[in-house]
Design a binder for these strands. Structure first.
Lengths: 135, 135
DNA sequence: TAAGTGTATTAAGTGATATAATACACTTGA
DNA sequence: TCAAGTGTATTATATCACTTAATACACTTA
């Protein structure tokens, strides 16, 4: 409930999740949506920490994970930059999509819904485009 | 990685999530799938704790939440019983479904996918029924 | 050389989770 | 009546994830 602009990025943090995860996800999202271009610089650890009013270590933790996923490259003395590999971004996006879908289907199955139920609901929702009637 | 039978229920706990949440979800799931009938007794706090080798307080925490959701009723000296209201189970199920779907759609949108993308993928997946090609 | 980068370390505080031990109120059945 | 089995409550303790704080170092650029 408190939106902050940091460079080209927009952040909205709360306490429902670890801060470093929220930063991570919101940067990933910006990347996937193309809101940050390949090779572009993202805000420095210190700048980000100051703008979001959180500790630099917390920002570091998010940045480390971005690099571990191959989405960014760090250059000492210069800053952190988005990878120049469009391939890397694409495959990472695909991995996330698979994770989200599998997760969703697992949860629905835990409620006893079959694939047909879900498919049917999606079609119906597509035409109506609001609310939920699946019971 | 370690399956346990407790009465009519099956549990599989790990350390990826709080224990009380896992118990909660697995009982909900059994309820939604009709694996436990309306009005049926579920294992006592002590029995459950002993069978799962965890602390009774942890089981209590899960049971409290079940009751708060109106899914169970407790009777001192007798035990904990599933609600006799089919209506209650149905609406709770519907609430969960809505939560799962909204959550899923939010995540997909955070990756920049439109409703049409998702719908198309679901249809395609429906015919193929394995793997993921959405990139 | 100064200012801005990423990086590393050590210390501390907080809150959620889980365990342990114990006690009390209630219900049932022998 | 009473023992055994229920749910419930309390207090204390331990651990871990997360976050902050304070510092220091290596590197790059202007």
């Amino acid at each position: 409930m408190d939106i902050r602009q940091v460079g080209a990025l927009t952040f909205q943090l709360d306490f429902s999740q670890p801060l470093y995860e929220q930063i991570l996800e919101q940067i990933r999202s910006a990347l996937a949506k193309g809101e940050i271009g390949l090779g572009e610089k993202i805000p420095s650890v210190r700048e980000m920490a100051h703008a979001l009013k959180i500790n630099p270590n917390t920002v570091m933790r998010a940045y480390k994970e971005l690099e571990r996923d191959g989405l960014t490259e760090k250059r000492r003395g210069q800053g952190t930059f988005v990878t120049t590999s469009e391939e890397r971004v694409k495959t990472f996006r695909a991995e996330l999509v698979k994770e989200y879908i599998d997760d969703f289907l697992n949860k629905m199955e835990s409620l006893g819904y079959s694939w047909e139920d879900i498919e049917g609901y999606m079609q119906e929702r597509g035409s109506r485009r609001k609310g939920s009637d699946l019971t």
